[in-house]
Simulated scan of single mutants.
Amino acid sequence: MNRPFGQRTAFWGITYRELMWAGVFYLVSVLMYDVALSLSERSWAGGKSLIQVQLEYLPQILINYLFKILLTLPTWWLFFRKLAPRPLERKAWLHLAAAPLHVYLSLRGFYAVADAFGIGHLEGYGQVWDLYISLLFYILQFGIFHAYSYHQNLQRQQKLEAELRQAALQSELAALKAQINPHFLYNTFNTISASVPPELEHTRELLAELADMFRYQLRATKTDFVTVREEVDFAKKYLDLEKARFGDRLRVDIHVAPDAADAKIPPMILQPLVENSVKHGIASLIEGGEVRINVLQKNGALLFEISDTGVGMNHSLKGSSPAESEGIGLKNTQLRLEKMLGAQLRISQNQPRGTKIEFEIKQA
């Protein structure tokens, strides 16, 4: 997906547009400091023009702000990447320790370089002004950073809520279009199954599995959580029905760790991902392929992996998040996981061929 240059990521998740605005902020700060310092010194500047005085102070101001930038980068990474999930109040307390260290190191570096190149700077009690201005600058810039981060998070939350409302509306419309009494379906399946001759036992079994799937889907609309064992069994029934269609072209491998089988997860999470593997990965291959489901528990979290040996990542998935892809099942599954559990789908190329979808659910 081609994005405008300004929206592309430079590093640490920072876009080029954000880097540009940060550069503008520092440039304006340098110019304002230079003008203020020049105006305050002009009265005893010996008849020099304002431009001459500004040029005299510009080298020391540039060196001063260069050290501020160099120390801002790791400080920004600490607060907005490493500690991003922490509450704002806790980060505010941490700023009380980071601010003096940031100011001290930036001024020490500035004074050392200025002395080495014979560039003037405040000395003695006059250095109090450097400390004061540097501290104010720290508060101003990180105040802006936190405000911008809050704005971004709010926009993401509003976008997610809008997508969830849209997904819910689509689900409601789909349900209205296909509103058939589930009990009518069960009774119909039982009637058809009873009419199947004994020699067609496999057909009877398929009808029973299809009836079980409808029964599970009805239950899923009435409960928020099911066990991993129940969810995997539902996905297995779906794959059994697909195997009846594909025959030996579809192979299935399912592994659920014993300590993960009774854990609780939202219903109807695995089946859309498995369906994606069959529909987009294996259906078009003459030789078919294999679908694997692995569930294990590690460090207090459930780890899910759905992989296939199909055609691999197509244009709608490569380089995109599930929310940006064309698959409705992937979109809805990602939205449910993100909204309910804060989990993210990770889509990658399977080895040696195919697609792998992974996600992690933290256990309470």
Rank of each mutant, 00 (worst) to 15 (best):
N2L: 13
F5T: 03
Q7R: 11
R8N: 04
R8Y: 01
T9A: 01
F11E: 04
F11N: 04
G13F: 02
I14E: 00
T15H: 05
E18V: 11
M20Q: 02
M32P: 04
Y33C: 08
V35N: 05
V35W: 06
A36W: 13
A36G: 05
S38N: 06
A45R: 07
G47E: 04
I51R: 12
Q52L: 09
V53G: 06
I61W: 06
Y65M: 08
F67C: 01
K68Q: 12
K68N: 10
L71A: 00
L71I: 05
T72V: 11
T75D: 00
W76H: 12
L78W: 06
R81M: 02
L88Y: 14
E89C: 03
A97I: 13
A99F: 08
V103L: 06
S106R: 02
F110P: 12
Y111D: 02
Y111V: 10
D115A: 14
F117G: 06
G120K: 11
H121F: 00
L122I: 03
G126W: 04
W129D: 07
W129I: 14
S134W: 03
S134N: 09
L135M: 11
L135K: 04
L136E: 02
L136N: 00
Q141N: 12
F145R: 06
A147Q: 05
S149N: 13
Y150L: 09
A162W: 06
L164M: 13
L173W: 10
N181V: 07
N181C: 08
P182C: 10
P182Y: 15
N187D: 09
N190Q: 13
S193M: 15
A194M: 14
A194T: 13
V196N: 05
V196W: 03
P197R: 01
P198N: 07
P198A: 08
E199I: 08
R204Y: 03
A208R: 10
E209V: 07
D212P: 09
R219V: 09
F225E: 14
V226S: 05
E231A: 03
E231V: 04
V232P: 02
D233I: 05
A235G: 05
D240T: 11
L241G: 11
R249H: 13
L250A: 12
R251C: 07
R251M: 12
V252G: 08
I254M: 03
H255W: 07
V256I: 13
A261G: 02
D262R: 04
I265T: 10
P266T: 01
L270G: 01
Q271W: 09
L273S: 05
E275D: 13
E275W: 05
G281E: 00
S284D: 07
G288T: 03
G289H: 00
L296Y: 04
N299K: 11
E305D: 12
I306F: 01
G310C: 03
S321H: 15
P322N: 01
A323K: 10
E326N: 10
L330T: 02
N332S: 03
R336S: 06
R336E: 10
L337C: 08
L337I: 08
M340D: 12
Q351N: 14
G354Y: 07
E358P: 00
E358N: 04
K362G: 11
A364F: 02
